[in-house]
Design a protein around this nucleic acid. Structure first.
Lengths: 248, 248
DNA sequence: AACTTTGATGCAAAATATTGAAAAATAAAG
DNA sequence: CTTTATTTTTCAATATTTTGCATCAAAGTT
């Protein structure tokens, strides 16, 4: 592996987690901690990160105050993302919703996978930007800075005109009776159109989001074809099994 | 095998993987590692890739080189950005083109300025995202990762449906006879629509971009209302003065 | 204060680069 | 078709860089 590849990986990890640990990188990249330390030192001199005791933190104002949320649940998110990878096939058109769960998946997509990705999430674009085999279509619209996505007329029109194979939905609330719901009106409408434009919808839901409901409906539970969660033995999942929904 | 064929193969491999190893290429092309090394050195001098220890990496693959470019001319860019600030007024709708010049302006916008900004540039959004008084409209479309902007049908439609007061154009080439031209077809068309949707167009041009021309026309020089440059005493500017264009 | 973790430094082994020269291939000239 | 000159490629010897390890100092923890 080239030194520059390691650099890139370190930066990638940093973009995802906002922080990296020496030993974690050492494991990931199969080199000694000393080497990682030296790499981080060099990247620091280049101004690309800030070296700190035991690792490094992102230096500048990337889309990070947003990505921070990924930290607090990252192990669960990573294991969910891993389960999503087999669902992809070359040549598909895939919709990526906003949210950290889809981000974790985007970060894990294999290099040799050829996809068209349609999204309204700025962080997703940031992660996929350099991927040669992935064609990115971005849905324009009004910036909703809280979630760092676009919403509104243009966004909805964009997805209405699209025909996708798969849609990955970051879930706010999922309930067997009430279906998928969201706390924000504009976002909920965008998500709704995403599911309608897609042959299959995959819901990404951490356990604490199950059996809860928010004001605005995205879609009923029967529109979901697959639920990915971190703990698929959860009792709260049985009603979805009964609906014939695949649970991973 | 011709040397040029090898060059082409190396570039191809690089486009495919973002990186190449000396020994891998040596195997593939059936020549010694030394020869590959010399090839890579030559391609590096031509600016087609970046030679690194053990191989080479694609030149554009670095997500930071966008910010880097901003640095390299930052004094000139900053002084240009400063000149642009008085052109803004509360309540305006302003188009921001891609490129580092517009980025420098976005960075410098006063906190109390109320604007609607329409752009197809991801870096511009990143900078304006946290600004309470700025409403950002993003033009969707196909990701053009080299410039980190969107292009294509959706982008053009978006700007066609817009009526803006001002348009800030990052200039590739500006020539009194040939007008504003760009090296990339898709980008040139987007820029063209931007100028057409805007009451006034401001061209941001560093001196080395004056009196040059590229294949694709954005607009004729008379459509420009203002030129902002770092050195407004430049002799190359007199033809623009004669056209009645304000030069700052 | 004792203990643990992390960082800095020097060193040796391995990998990679550089250099110069010889061999091979190609072009140019007679 | 030779012969000579030029470029390209390989090879070998010699630097240089990178990496991992050992050691010790410095910074955090208990």
């Amino acid at each position: 592996m080239l030194k520059e590849e390691r650099f890139q990986q370190i930066i990638n990890q940093l973009n995802l987690n906002h922080k990296v640990y020496l030993d974690q990188l050492s494991n990931l990249l199969k080199v000694s901690v000393d080497t990682i330390r030296r790499d981080i030192k060099e990247l620091d001199l280049q101004g690309k990160l800030k070296a700190v005791r035991g690792g490094a933190i992102a230096h500048s104002s990337n889309p990070h105050n947003f990505i921070d949320r990924l930290d607090y649940d990252s192990e669960a998110k990573k294991s969910m993302a891993k389960k999503a990878i087999p669902l992809f096939h070359n040549g598909q058109t895939v919709i990526f919703d906003g949210g950290t769960s889809t981000l974790a998946i985007a970060n894990m997509l294999p290099d040799d996978l050829h996809l068209t990705v349609a999204t309204n999430s700025f962080p997703v674009v940031t992660i996929l930007k350099e991927r040669k085999n992935i064609n990115v279509l971005f849905a324009g619209g009004q910036l909703f800075s809280e979630a760092f996505v676009t919403v509104g007329y243009d966004t909805i029109t964009f997805f209405k005109d699209l025909r996708a194979d798969l849609c990955f939905l970051g879930i706010c609330s999922l309930h067997a009776q009430h279906g998928v719901t969201a706390p924000n009106y504009e976002e909920s409408k965008v998500k709704k159109v995403m599911t309608e434009s897609s042959l299959q919808t995959v819901a990404l839901a951490t356990p604490q989001k199950l059996d809860t409901a928010e004001p605005y409906l995205v879609c009923t539970a029967d529109k979901i074809s697959t639920i990915i969660t971190s703990n698929h033995d959860d009792k709260k999942l049985t009603p979805f099994h009964k609906l014939g929904i695949e649970v991973l």
